[in-house]
């Protein structure tokens, strides 16, 4: 309740401070549009904003799902195949450290302005935190518990599903706090680099047209999406890790 109240207070304080700055300093709307003006854009362009938001959200969610599938598959593979992680790590580090704007440019040249490059960018940005946390979580399993299960002649799958996976869940959920919100930012950046739709495209369009009010409107929508993603992860955490609060 207290946390909710603090959040609401911050949520109201930002536009209030913004309005005060506008009243006191009276900047040109091209530099700092008043909140009412941005609210007007949000309302009058709601259909267009919703459409572009849907595009961005689709790219983020699909890319995020793919990243999860790959990260989960790799983490399980590393857990079951001794030495696999050691072999794969240098390649993963290389892949992680290639600057993604250059990857994006190559992808656009090769694949054209399609969904593929945007999804790949989202996957590249979100995949590593998920894999790293999941991997760490699986390794955090109590070795005594694994020994206990081995003396019961548990299969590797039983050790994974009944001991390692539950141990990794707090780490996996923590990864989502970074990766899920990151997927939305990644989708916007991908669109910002190359797209004809989406919030990233709107940002480019608004900048070239000096539409600061629309830029602010898109920023508010994008922030709202990221906060929604964060809240969803929080809900999942409260449900999955409810035993921690018992």
């Amino acid at each position: 309740m207290k946390a909710g109240f603090s959040f609401l207070l911050v949520l109201l304080a930002v536009p209030a401070l913004w309005q005060i700055i506008v009243w006191v300093f009276e900047p040109k709307p091209a530099f700092l549009p008043p909140p009412a003006m941005v609210a007007g854009v949000l309302w009058s362009e709601r259909t267009s904003l919703l459409g572009h938001t849907f595009t961005t959200l689709s790219e983020a969610v699909i890319g995020y799902a793919i990243a999860n599938a790959i990260a989960f598959g790799l983490a399980v593979f590393f857990f079951h195949v001794r030495g696999a992680e050691r072999v794969a790590t240098p390649w993963l580090v290389v892949l992680k450290n290639v600057p993604f704007p250059t990857v994006a440019s190559i992808l656009v040249v090769v694949m054209g302005d399609s969904l593929g490059p945007k999804l790949i960018i989202v996957v590249l940005v979100t995949f590593f935190p998920i894999l790293a946390n999941l991997n760490k979580g699986l390794k955090s399993v109590d070795p005594g518990l694994v020994d206990r299960m081995r003396t019961l002649h548990a299969t590797r799958w039983q050790i994974f599903s009944k001991a390692a996976w539950p141990a990794s869940l707090p780490y996996y959920i923590a990864a989502h706090e970074i990766a899920f919100t990151g997927s939305i930012i990644a989708a916007i950046v991908a669109e910002w680099l190359f797209a004809q739709r989406g919030l990233g495209f709107l940002i480019v369009q608004a900048s070239t047209q000096f539409r600061t009010d629309r830029l602010f409107a898109v920023t508010i929508v994008a922030s709202g999406l990221a906060m929604l993603a964060y809240a969803l992860v929080g809900l999942a955490e409260r449900h999955v890790l409810r035993w921690q609060r018992a």
Partner: peptide
């Protein structure tokens, strides 16, 4: 064979009953 180590080898997300049941899920 049944083994008990110095540090309880329990699954933190399982209740006392579920931890005991875990043995029977395997054996």
């Amino acid at each position: 064979i049944g083994v008990a180590f110095q540090r309880p080898a329990l699954v933190p997300s399982r209740t006392a009953l579920e931890n005991i049941q875990l043995t029977l899920e395997i054996v």
